[in-house]
Design a protein around this nucleic acid. Structure first.
Length: 587
RNA sequence: CUGCCCGUAGCUCAACUGGAUAGAGCACCAGCCUUCUAAGCUGGGGGUUACAGGUUCGAUUCCUGUCGGGCAGGCCA
């Protein structure tokens, strides 16, 4: 039983004593101000209203009925009816022992009760390198998954691979056109195809391996392909020109499929494999791993998409209009009905997404968490609508939206756009600021907040940089222990009664809060709380370090202090690990 | 035009989902290394939580409206 639970029990007994039969949920919080004690309880104010009693008098009665405890120094009434508990110094030392005993397991909770939860994140189209926007989803999702796991959930980390659909066709086409270009055949490169250099690289690789096998008569490539509109009109946002531009691209894709025949599948497979391996490697280096890479294409190949549409049809949730099949999303609260199958017979992305989510439910997860870019927020109602229509409990699905990250360099916004190829890749970011700083900065903000990522700050090896601030605290402890040179295994059993200074009490209180911080972070899906917590704890440690010398003459006091800072090191390490940041022993 | 998110110190952001005198870091000012790492510490100034109402013991938090910013609104993904 934790200290907090112990106190809650005492209060509960007191309430039961003076108000028999009264159900009271005891909430204990840590007051911001030290004058308000170590824990504060608002139960008197909560009960005052339904009982029509004066909250301060109620609080008095509760305090009088409080069972005797050897850890409570005093309990007083304050404000509108708060019960403030001040604890004796000895109440805190137990946490140091607990940390020594539990080590890397310290902080684990049972909020999840072993329930299974799937976290799907990143899921970027494998049509090019991951950029800094994906990086945030990756860092957030990975940390969130760690947090949930620590909170007692069984977590499955999944990446949904959009390996079907038009975007992949565009990439395959882009690569083929670059391949032709390398051999002197200049088909004007569409403005809405993939412009990045990596496309040329793939073309070069294919040329090297297979020579001119995929060459075709240049005069036939543009056969029957709708004309390309004026670029200026497209850029100007002219709707007709944009439509023509897309038609032109689709025409080229059709031409590529026709001319390449069976070889088209090779191109498609090659670029997919190339981009996916690149993506996996990138994420692995970033410390982000997955249990499952789920293929969208597999949903089509196994008939799951067709089946789910058929089921919606059978249950009367579809209708036909203008040759297309529509899902009655408005019947479930969405703004508009949505097309699941186009007039040309192709299923929409939405259709495969329904099939995908239905599949998640089939796999029996207790909770499903999708991490999406905030630009997809309009998509949530329709997916939930579809799940409800299928008779599934849409409440099981929670979509966590991650806002975009905007890079700043030299005080200037770094402009980005995927299509034009002028984006900063996750790789570039990682090599510029390092994995640790990148992982940390990404989760330093609440996920639903816009993130201003200051590259200069993340790179700076100075006290401006919170990553180093925390890592330095960890390294400092290591350094002291190295200087001491004693046997670490005796530290868990030393007498901690000598730890009574304000610095030591603050640190122990901070350590004690760790499991609660984790629980809150898990409940609210907000790993950023851990980042802030670690900053605070590093601050406590640095303050302590500057105020007191650890390696003092008094052997008992020295061991007590070393025991405390070693426990602190453990929690710093546990927390950093959760965020995917290294805990260096030297800096 | 409609829907969702956001608006907190000069800047970047917290605030335990309704708690007490709204907190950190940066920047600015003044101090601390003969010492276990100064990538550190101590002190100081800085706020009508965009604005106006409402709900109640109590509001940065919940509701309504206004202003300002972001994102969506395809038989695109």
């Amino acid at each position: 039983m934790t200290l907090k639970e112990h106190l809650a029990n005492l209060l509960e007994q007191a309430v039961a004593d003076i108000l028999p039969g009264q159900q009271a949920v005891i909430e204990l919080e840590r007051p911001k101000s030290a004058e308000h004690g170590d824990f504060a309880c608002n139960i008197a104010m909560r009960l005052a209203k339904p009982l029509k009693k004066n909250p301060r008098e109620l609080a008095q009665a509760i305090v009088r009925a409080l069972p005797v405890s050897n850890i409570i120094e005093k309990a007083e009434i304050a404000g509108a009816g708060f019960i403030n508990l001040k604890l004796k110094p000895a109440a805190w030392t137990g946490i140091v022992q607990a940390i020594h005993e539990q080590g890397t397991r310290f902080g684990r909770g049972n909020l999840g009760k072993g329930q299974s939860v799937q976290v799907e994140f990143v899921s970027a189209n494998p049509t090019g390198p991951l950029h800094v926007g994906h990086g945030r989803g990756a860092a957030y999702g990975a940390s969130l998954a760690n947090v949930l796991e620590t909170a007692g959930y069984t977590v499955t980390r999944e990446y949904y691979v959009n390996d079907a659909g038009r975007q992949m066709d565009i990439l395959a086409l882009s690569t083929w056109l670059r391949y032709l270009e390398l051999q002197g055949i200049l088909v004007p490169f569409p403005s809405n195809a993939y412009q990045g250099d990596y496309v040329r690289d793939m073309a070069r690789a294919i040329l090297q391996e297979h020579g001119d096998r995929y060459m075709h008569d240049p005069s036939r490539i543009l056969d029957g392909v709708p004309a390309r509109p004026d670029d200026e009109l497209v850029e100007g946002g002219d709707p007709l020109a944009k439509a023509q531009n897309e038609a032109h691209l689709d025409g080229l894709i059709a031409a590529a499929k026709k001319l390449l025949g069976i070889d088209y599948a090779y191109f498609h497979g090659f670029v997919l494999n190339e981009q996916l391996s690149d993506c996996k490697e990138d994420l692995l280096e970033f410390g982000v791993t997955f249990n499952e890479w789920f293929s969208e294409k597999s949903l089509f190949d196994t008939g799951k998409v067709a089946a789910v549409v058929k089921k919606l049809e059978a249950t009367g949730h579809l209708y036909e209009q203008d040759g297309a099949r529509w899902f009655k999303a408005t019947a479930f609260g969405d703004e508009k009905d949505r097309v699941v199958q186009r007039a040309n017979g192709e299923f929409t992305y939405f259709a495969s997404d329904i099939a995908y989510h239905a599949n998640k439910f089939e796999r029996g997860f207790d909770r499903i968490i999708d991490v999406w870019g905030a630009d997809h927020h309009g998509y949530i109602p329709r997916v939930k609508a579809a799940l409800t229509a299928l008779g599934l409990d849409a409440e099981k699905l929670v979509v966590s939206l991650v806002q975009f990250a905007v890079l700043y360099r030299g005080g200037q916004k770094v402009q980005m756009s995927t299509r034009s190829g002028s984006f900063v890749t996750l790789r570039e970011l990682r090599s510029e600021v390092g994995n640790d700083a990148a992982r940390f900065y990404y989760v330093l903000r609440k996920s639903d907040q816009h993130l201003d990522f200051d590259l200069d700050l993340a790179k700076s090896q100075s006290n401006d940089n919170p990553v180093y601030y925390i890592q330095y605290a960890h390294a400092r402890v290591c350094s002291v222990l190295a200087e001491w040179g004693g046997d670490l295994s005796i530290l868990p059993r030393v007498d901690l009664g000598l730890l009574t200074s304000p610095y030591e009490l603050d640190l122990m209180k901070r350590l004690m809060a760790y499991p609660e911080i984790l629980e809150t972070a898990a409940k609210e899906l907000s790993p950023h709380q851990i980042a802030y917590y670690l900053k605070d704890m590093a601050g406590d440690l640095h303050t302590y370090y500057n105020a007191e010398k650890f390696l003092v003459e008094d052997e008992a006091l020295k061991l007590a202090r070393l025991s405390l800072i070693t426990a602190t090191r453990q929690v710093l390490s546990n927390g950093l690990l959760m965020l995917g940041v290294s805990a260096p022993e030297k800096m």
